[in-house]
């Protein structure tokens, strides 16, 4: 059996329930530790699956370039404060590289960008959130012609994906770090307070995909066809 399969089974049936069970005995704000551990156990099978495939140099470099592009894309918009095309690039990577590649691009770019802007308790949450963003895009669009790939529908897809997958995960991390008591009022208060920033993020993704999806997908398709990657 492959290493990743073994670890996936181990993590689903032993590690995650074990962490949840033992976490109940932790004092203080142990739930934050438990949640971080669970996220790590979710992330590891994806990474191990990538290791098991023994990726070729070209595939490795393509993914590295896409991660770096996602992180550095902010620099192209020096004239526009608060404009982050990061999720747009991750979604397009998912469409081209598939669910696994998209997850990897998302998670690695979150991790790498935190080496620039500072690691924190949010790092695992961001890795999970960005990874899922790429995974959803890959699962919906990679090698599938049923869904329309015109800029408008991709943009709307990105808007919905960021608003309903990335933002709730990141807000949950805020809820866990900043509250003393978890009542419906307090939890929804935090989620509601985050809605404006989330809408800005989703709006940026919408605009990025509207403008960028056609030319960038064309460039990526050209590279993958020319060199026979992800065919």
């Amino acid at each position: 059996m492959k290493k990743s399969t073994v670890f996936t089974l181990l993590s689903v049936f032993v590690l995650i329930p074990g962490a949840l069970f033992l976490g109940r005995f932790l004092p203080g704000r142990g739930f934050y530790l438990t949640s971080t551990l669970v996220i790590l156990f979710v992330l590891l099978p994806f990474f191990l699956a990538f290791e098991d495939r023994r990726p070729q140099a070209r595939e490795l470099v393509l993914i590295a370039v896409l991660c770096a592009l996602a992180v550095a894309s902010r620099a192209a918009f020096v004239w526009l404060p608060h404009f982050k095309p990061l999720f747009g690039v991750i979604i397009l990577s998912g469409i081209v590289c598939g669910a696994q590649g998209g997850f990897l691009v998302g998670a690695v770019s979150a991790f790498a960008s935190n080496f620039l802007f500072g690691q924190g308790p949010w790092t695992p949450w961001q890795m999970l959130a960005y990874g899922i963003c790429g995974l959803v895009a890959g699962a919906c669009y990679h090698k599938k012609d049923r869904l329309p790939k015109d800029p408008l529908s991709l943009g709307l897809f990105g808007f919905v994906a960021v608003l309903f997958t990335v933002c709730p995960i990141l807000d949950t991390s805020t809820v866990l770090t900043s509250l003393t008591v978890f009542t419906p009022a307090s939890v929804f208060g935090i989620y509601a307070a985050a809605i404006p920033t989330n809408l800005i993020q989703a709006g940026c993704t919408l605009v990025t995909l509207l403008v960028l999806s056609k030319p960038l997908l064309y460039k990526l398709a050209r590279i993958t066809q020319k060199y026979g990657l992800y065919q």
Binding site: Q56, A57, R58, L60, V61, L62, A64, V65, A68, L69, A72, S73, A76, F77, W79, L80, F83, P85, V207, T208, V211, L212, P215, L216, K219, L220, I223, Y227
Partner: peptide, 26 residues
């Protein structure tokens, strides 16, 4: 115009980095 100017820069960046990435890989 700012958006479209930024996108042009990003596209140029993508084209350059993808091609040179394949060179690196080979």
């Amino acid at each position: 115009q700012k958006i479209s100017s930024g996108m042009t820069v990003l596209l140029a960046l993508a084209g350059w980095s993808l091609e040179s990435g394949i060179l690196t890989a080979d």
